[in-house]
Computed example of a mutant assay.
Amino acid sequence: MEKMMAESQNAVLKEIEKATKDMMTNLDTEVGIMCARMENIEQKMSEKETKKKSFDPDVSLIVVGLPHLEGEDLMAKVKDLLHIGLGCDTALCPAAVERVRARGNRPGPKVELSSALEKVAVLRRKSELKDNDSFKDVYVSSAKSHAERMMELNFRTLIRETAVGRDFYMAANGRMVKRTQVPRRATREGSSADGGDA
């Protein structure tokens, strides 16, 4: 009887030991999978933060209207824009380019240059794009930080809501500019610009 009880006890202990071992193995596997997932998520978040931080608004530009093609060499397209479209020195080379999400049908990249001086040089020549058939629909503007964009958006909203808001607009450089007024009344016979033939 004692022998049977001892054997039963040993069998139960072995079963418990085996079940515990299986549970620990399964738990280790699950923990390993969870750790791998967490590392993957952390890496993706880190890459996104690095991408966002890599474009400093002080030395970056936004290009609008540069067509998007599948398998394109974006760096080469931006170099063509700078050297052919704007006539910049061939020594001027972007530090980084990234295609950003297009708003409507106006695709374009974000371009980071090496210095603020290069950025200023490009912005001073941006009006030359309209004279180049290949780039006449492309527009270049200064990149802005998130805080600057939000301030500008809020300011535009406030101006629109004021009584004189329709008389002003915000230029690309952030200045408020009074709209040039066209006389409201002018006679067909060629009356004066003040609109009166009294």
Rank of each mutant, 00 (worst) to 15 (best):
M1C: 11
K3W: 14
M4Q: 15
M4L: 13
M4C: 14
M5P: 07
M5L: 14
A6L: 11
S8P: 01
Q9V: 08
A11V: 11
A11Y: 04
K14Y: 08
E15V: 13
K18R: 10
A19T: 12
A19E: 06
T20D: 01
N26Q: 14
N26E: 13
L27Y: 12
T29N: 15
E30Q: 14
E30M: 09
V31T: 10
G32R: 03
I33M: 06
M34F: 15
M34V: 12
M34Q: 15
R37Y: 13
E39M: 03
N40H: 04
I41G: 09
K44Y: 07
K44V: 13
M45Q: 12
M45D: 10
S46A: 08
K48R: 06
K48D: 04
E49Q: 06
S54H: 05
P57I: 01
S60M: 03
S60C: 09
G65K: 05
E72M: 03
D73Y: 00
L74G: 00
A76N: 00
A76E: 04
V78F: 01
D80N: 06
D80Y: 04
L82E: 02
I84Y: 15
G85T: 03
G87E: 04
C88R: 02
C88Y: 03
L92T: 02
C93T: 14
A96Q: 04
V97P: 14
E98P: 15
V100D: 05
V100A: 14
R101E: 04
A102L: 05
R103S: 06
R106I: 11
P107W: 03
P109S: 01
K110I: 13
L113I: 04
S114E: 10
A116I: 03
L117Q: 06
E118I: 00
K119C: 03
V120E: 14
R124S: 07
K126L: 05
S127E: 02
S127Q: 10
E128W: 09
K130Y: 00
K130L: 00
N132M: 04
N132S: 01
S134K: 15
F135P: 02
K136I: 00
V138Y: 02
V138S: 01
Y139I: 07
V140I: 08
S141H: 12
S141G: 12
S142V: 05
A143G: 04
A143I: 02
A147D: 11
R149G: 07
R149A: 03
M150Q: 15
M150C: 07
N154K: 11
F155S: 08
R156Q: 03
R156T: 05
L158I: 11
G165M: 00
D167G: 07
D167R: 11
D167Q: 13
R175G: 05
M176S: 02
K178Y: 00
R179E: 09
R179W: 15
Q181I: 12
Q181S: 14
V182A: 08
T187K: 15
T187H: 15
T187A: 14
G190Y: 01
G190Q: 00
S191P: 05
S191W: 05
S192M: 15
A193H: 09
D194E: 06
D197E: 14
A198Q: 15
